[in-house]
Design a protein around this nucleic acid. Structure first.
Length: 263
DNA sequence: AACAGCCGCAACCGCCACTGT
DNA sequence: TACAGTGGCGGTTGCGGCTGT
């Protein structure tokens, strides 16, 4: 690959993790908690890069990980969220409890791309299908002049949000977050998606230092939106009616901020 | 049975934002 | 303000299993 390593790899194990390494890492994190990834390998007695430990824990060892068998509803949600957010896998994963960004990214790049490309095979349906698999954020602000592979394949025209998630953690006032109200399920086409919605406190600044829309712990009270009807438009209106009724017009930027708050 | 090609997924990488000094 | 350290993200790679010949 020819890239310089992010940290010294001398004497470090690489490649697939062994069961022993997994046990060591799990035991250490169970005893000491997450964090301090750079120094964790030394403290835990692992010959691994800290980044590698973090990735292994987050993508594989975490106890709440749900692996394999992505359901039809989950798949549908991934497609719709991707249509809205682009390749912001961590945000998408945040809407799918137990799923990791890496898993969703892999699933998208392997399974969904092909599936959706196959769907668009009829020429008349091409435009519609293209809009489903577009990468809006990538189109808008991709770092290079070359469009990303998915955009090359699709050439979609979408709202550009951002390619990378920007962490907005500045809280002007940081009251302890009350526990969220009991989850309210969003009715989907035949199944229920557990609502893992916002835990947004008052007076949280957005990226511009302005106060974010006041949500004040209000949670969805209306509008069971069948998943099959959920698209960019219905999702916006659903979000607007349920979260932003008191705020000014919802634009995609604020929607993105909202979704980031959820994550 | 042996080989080649394909595919899925775990892991690695560089980049960037955030935080503390 | 500048800088270094750290954490997190998305893109990419390559290994290993599976399938077809």
């Amino acid at each position: 690959m020819g890239r310089s390593p992010c940290c010294s790899k001398e004497g470090l194990n690489r490649g697939a993790w062994t069961a022993t390494e997994d046990r060591t890492l799990t035991a250490y994190i169970n005893a000491n908690g997450e964090g301090g990834w750079r120094s964790l390998p030394k403290r835990a007695g692992l010959k691994r890069c800290g980044k590698s430990c973090r990735l292994r824990w987050l993508n594989y060892l975490r106890p709440d990980i749900k692996r394999g068998n992505i359901s039809h509803d989950e798949e549908d949600l991934i497609i719709r969220l991707h249509n809205l957010l682009g390749n912001r896998w961590s945000l998408i994963a945040g809407r799918l409890p137990g799923r990791t960004d890496n898993e969703i990214k892999n699933y998208w790049n392997t399974t969904l791309i092909k599936k959706l490309r196959a769907q668009r095979s009829p020429p008349q349906a091409e435009h519609k299908a293209i809009s489903m698999i577009g990468t809006p954020a990538s189109n808008g602000e991709h770092k290079t002049t070359d469009p990303p592979p998915s955009a090359q394949a699709t050439g979609s025209q979408h709202h550009a949000i951002r390619t990378r998630a920007i962490r907005c953690t500045r809280a002007i006032v940081e009251p302890p977050l009350p526990p969220p109200p009991p989850p309210q399920n969003l009715q989907t086409g035949g199944e229920l998606i557990e609502y893992a919605g916002p835990q947004i406190s008052n007076n949280v600044a957005n990226c511009d230092g302005q106060e974010a829309p006041s949500i004040n712990g209000d949670y969805p009270a209306t509008g069971h939106v069948p998943l099959e009807e959920m698209n960019e438009t219905t999702m916006e209106s659903w979000l607007e009616s349920n979260y932003l009724a008191e705020s000014a017009a919802l634009d995609l930027e604020s929607l993105t901020s909202l979704l980031e708050e959820w994550a």
